[in-house]
Write a protein that binds this DNA or RNA. Structure first.
Lengths: 209, 209
DNA sequence: CACTGTAGTAATCGACTGATAACATGTCAA
DNA sequence: TTGACATGTTATCAGTCGATTACTACAGTG
């Protein structure tokens, strides 16, 4: 019934020859899942390759280095999030914040996307990767502040909530829902609308993404 | 004047023979700095050993495995933070939130402490480490909610702000202060009181902790 | 002083990982 | 058909890392 944990990361990969452009995108999807599940250093290029259904050297050759692959993964994740925000912008102004929030939790549907973004916020010490992460974060901030028209404090609150969601997801607090008091409260009282979404998409402890 | 970047991680280590208890604590301090700077998987036991001024096998023997060492580092970090919160509790009730917030940013003075806590919130997928991280987070939540008497929503806001600080620190956004619009705003308008502290203690991009 | 436990190191190993080189196969235009 | 380029693999390597083993040195006690 439930798929074997070890096989969750493996995507369908019967595809034969493919255009380099399509293959790149396929690898980026797989890489997002794996990097999100195992962090940057914790991920091997071979795991990404097998998740994408290609050989390890081919992944390296297509992207140059593991670091360059990761940078593309980050940039793609921030770009997707910006797209989701942009799509959630039109509509009643008084519901704008909740629509944008839903756009964020909606990223949970794309495997690895949210943990990749969360992980990127801890890579500021890396010279090249950190630069990309700061640019991504700043682009989000600019969108919420300028395009969405939030005040400085509203923007702060919006991002703060997002970072708390990152922690809740990263900690797998959903596993303690109903048993742990803190977990139940943080999920139940603080994310009533996101709760369903989060619990539905979140993997259990020990399970890969 | 300023110490060489490569030597920042190296602590004074002229000490000769030492009691195992003292040596453990010394290694935990060093390990907190290194784990905080390079993440769990990104850190080698040899780096921890050299930062503590002992040999690599000795670190492994004292703590059993790298994972057990990391678990002790996390537990120690959460315990220290709880202590800091407890110390900040007494005083005027209307300034309680800002005192507790200052207690959090005060952790920046202990090298690696804050990034270790931030990093632990992304380790929920690891069976054993995740358990420890969830327990640590829950203990903090319980303290703020119960001992400090915050409402559910106040607690949520307090933790959300903390997670945003983690991101700001992890991204090294301070490096863009004055040049990047987003960075300047998030620091200047949103953390006016913490700004000094953060900028004073934060390493620059590329520098280890 | 000898004995015993504790603190500590040097040497080394097996497993892993990112990257490279060499080779193979498929596609398509002329 | 054939040449030429793009897609892809197998084999392999050099470096790294956590852990184990075996050994050394010191301190306190009777």
């Amino acid at each position: 019934m439930s798929p074997e944990a070890a096989e969750v990361l493996e995507s369908a990969a019967p595809a034969g020859r493919m255009s380099a452009t399509d293959r790149r995108e396929q690898i980026l999807v797989a890489a997002t899942a794996v990097f999100g599940a195992k962090t940057y250093v914790g991920t091997t290029t071979d795991e990404v390759a097998r998740a994408a259904g290609v050989s390890q050297p081919y992944v390296v050759r297509l992207f140059g280095t593991k670091q360059k692959l990761y940078i593309e993964v980050i940039q793609r994740a921030y770009a997707h999030l910006l797209d989701a925000f942009a799509a959630a912008l039109p509509g009643p102004v008084d519901e704008r914040a909740s629509r944008l929030g839903a756009a964020y939790t909606g990223l949970l549907a794309e495997r690895g996307m949210l943990p990749v973004i969360a992980g990127s916020t801890q890579m500021g010490g890396e010279t090249e990767i950190g630069q990309v992460a700061r640019e991504g974060f700043s682009s989000l901030w600019h969108f919420i502040r300028v395009d969405a028209g939030f005040s400085a404090d509203e923007t702060r609150g919006f991002f703060a909530t997002g970072m708390l969601i990152n922690a809740v997801v990263g900690l797998r607090l959903t596993d303690d829902y109903g048993t742990g008091v803190s977990a139940t409260e943080v999920l139940d009282e603080c994310f009533p609308d996101a709760l369903e979404k989060v619990r539905a998409f979140l993997p259990k402890v020990g399970e890969p993404w």
